[in-house]
Simulated scan of single mutants.
Amino acid sequence: MQDHATVVITGASSGIGLAAAEQLAARGFRVVLVGRTERRLNAAVDRVRAAGQGREPGWFRADFERLTEVRALAGYLLDTYPHIDVLVNNAGRRVLSHRLTEDGNEATVQANHLGHFLLSGLLRDRLRGGRIINTAVRPAANVRIDPDELNIPAERYRSVPAYQMTKAANILFAMEAARRWPDVLSMSFHPGLVRTNIGDDTALRYFFRYAPFLISPERSAAAMLPLITSPAGDLRNGGFYAGGRLPRLTRRIFTPEIAARLWDASERALA
């Protein structure tokens, strides 16, 4: 992908998203930052502007727990950018206890999957010939996903399994988008165990700040950049990348049938 391309990054006010935005701006890309918290987003815009040697980045505040804000974000992007070369669906959240959004969805699945599914669909035509990259995680051996029950009942809700399920959904979304939208290169990406603020509103905040084996957001973002900059022919549509490779995914979950069922279930959840 050539420099000066337009790259939209959600979850860009801190962590991997901000590091990727800075690295892309330094290379001359036109970067659009999306963040949930105005104070952090304003600080991130200043950093990306500096990395781009004064070039003004785009920005928009949106909380993916509110689908009206996701639709407003899509409206801003469609009104502002004639073509979007890359959409990085990076925003993610761990929710400590069961909570429903104002849209009636469990908060983890909406913030991590349904919001990005909606945004990608609304931008689909503007992304023709471009790329979608979903920040996922390497699936745990015990990960479970039931497309017919995206909204886990409160009595069975557990924070970590719910988060793992939504990250599996990010992989399945990329798989099915590759089939349904062949003119968009869709991939998912494992960033590694990164020192970020993803657990700030949960009991995991100390782990993600102080665990000694975590890698920096800058190192993780540098591993993502080849998915943005490499020639399309060097990448696999629908592929899940970890450490620059395509690890084998369990056929218990990551099948075309389950990917298609998840897509249909996601459309029903947003109807």
Rank of each mutant, 00 (worst) to 15 (best):
L185C: 12
G243P: 01
Q53N: 12
T108R: 12
D125C: 08
L114D: 06
E69C: 07
R252S: 11
R124W: 02
R248P: 06
A74H: 06
L150R: 06
V95E: 00
N89G: 02
Y210G: 00
T166L: 06
G121I: 04
D79G: 15
T255G: 07
V95D: 00
A265L: 14
M224T: 15
R39V: 12
A72S: 08
P57M: 03
G54H: 15
T250P: 00
R158M: 09
T229K: 03
L77S: 08
R158Q: 12
A44L: 13
A232V: 15
Q164E: 12
R205C: 03
Q53Y: 15
D264E: 13
G233L: 07
S159I: 01
G17Q: 03
I132G: 01
T68W: 10
A232K: 13
A140W: 14
A211G: 04
W59C: 07
L78M: 06
R49W: 15
Q110S: 08
E65I: 07
Y81W: 04
A178F: 03
A20K: 03
M187R: 02
R248S: 09
L193H: 13
W263A: 03
V70D: 02
A260N: 11
G238E: 05
E176G: 00
G129Y: 09
G115Y: 13
V32P: 00
L100A: 05
A136Y: 06
I253M: 11
A72Q: 10
I171R: 04
A44S: 11
L87R: 03
Y241E: 01
E176K: 00
A271P: 00
P231R: 02
W263K: 00
E56C: 09
L87Q: 08
H113K: 09
P57N: 02
I258F: 14
G28S: 04
N112C: 07
S188A: 13
A25R: 02
R99C: 11
V48P: 12
W59S: 12
G92A: 03
A50E: 11
V32Y: 10
S230C: 08
T108C: 10
E218Y: 07
P57V: 01
A260G: 08
F254L: 00
A25Y: 02
R55C: 08
T68F: 07
G92Y: 10
L73T: 03
F189R: 06
Q53F: 13
R61M: 12
A72W: 12
W59E: 10
P139V: 06
I132P: 05
L227N: 01
H113V: 11
A19C: 14
A203I: 14
R30S: 07
A271I: 04
G192S: 04
T37G: 03
A203V: 14
R131C: 07
V45I: 11
R71P: 00
E155R: 02
R128S: 14
R47T: 14
R126N: 14
M1E: 14
R268S: 14
L150V: 13
L77A: 09
T202L: 05
H190S: 09
R39E: 11
V109S: 07
T135Q: 10
V34K: 02
I253T: 11
M175C: 02
A140N: 12
R55W: 15
V70H: 00
N142F: 06
V143N: 08
L122Q: 04
L122Y: 02
P147A: 05
S220W: 05
T255M: 10
M165Y: 15
Y241C: 00
T250M: 00
N89H: 07
P231K: 00
I215V: 12
L127C: 11
L227F: 03
